[in-house]
Simulated assay, not measured.
Amino acid sequence: MVSNRPLVVGVSGASGLAYAVRLLETLDRLAIPSHLVMTPAAEITLAHETTLKVAQVRALATVWHKVDDLTAAPSSGSFRTRGMVVVPCSARTLGAIAATAGDNLLTRAADVTLKERRRLVLMVRETPLHLGHLRAMATVTEMGAVVAPPMPAFYARPRSLDDLVDHTVGRLLDLFDIDAGLARRWREADPDGAD
């Protein structure tokens, strides 16, 4: 049964740790198990972008794994999950996944997700993009991943940074058929669009 399977959450060192925190908070609120893998760069970025400590973020997950533990459950295809999201996904992590370089638990778990034909969503956080980034995105897409950069939806009329983060996290979870009630849907309030 997929409903009780965990979502693997990879967090790399790109800017955008607020997305990862809100995702973990939301999964916890929805009682959906999560397995967290954070890179050392993510831990550094967390300190720059938030007032949270690494232990506080780990506590939001059902289980957390050390990034260098290649014996952890998400490193095996026999560990059944509903898929994996990397949020945010740095260009370095994107490149490693595209090259199938399972050199740490995050990239190994992503590779396992692809080989098992499960949903892998990469919230790539880089701009502007050079040809290498674009080719890596094309490669992971051809392998079955979904590239979902955090693009604000201004039709939702966000009033705060939290509104922007919530909408983006809601749309990420939509990709796993999880309706978290965070995303304002296009024309949902009024079928004529006049709200």
Rank of each mutant, 00 (worst) to 15 (best):
R92A: 15
Y155V: 11
Y19C: 10
M1K: 06
G13H: 11
I32Y: 05
H65S: 11
L36I: 10
V11I: 15
L30F: 04
L27I: 04
G83Q: 04
P88V: 11
V11M: 14
A47Y: 05
N104S: 12
V140N: 05
G10M: 09
M84N: 06
P191Y: 09
P40I: 02
L60G: 04
G181L: 13
F154H: 10
L36T: 07
R135Q: 15
H133E: 07
A98D: 13
A55C: 06
A183K: 07
I44S: 12
S34K: 09
D192L: 15
D179H: 06
A110W: 04
R82N: 00
G193W: 06
A20D: 02
A55I: 12
E43P: 02
D103C: 10
D195I: 03
R125F: 12
L172C: 03
E126D: 06
G132I: 15
V147Y: 02
R80H: 12
R80W: 06
G102Q: 02
L172Q: 00
K53G: 03
L60Y: 00
P191A: 09
L70Q: 05
R159S: 07
S12C: 07
A110K: 12
P152L: 11
P128S: 05
R157L: 13
A183G: 08
A183W: 03
A189V: 07
D163V: 14
A183H: 11
L164D: 01
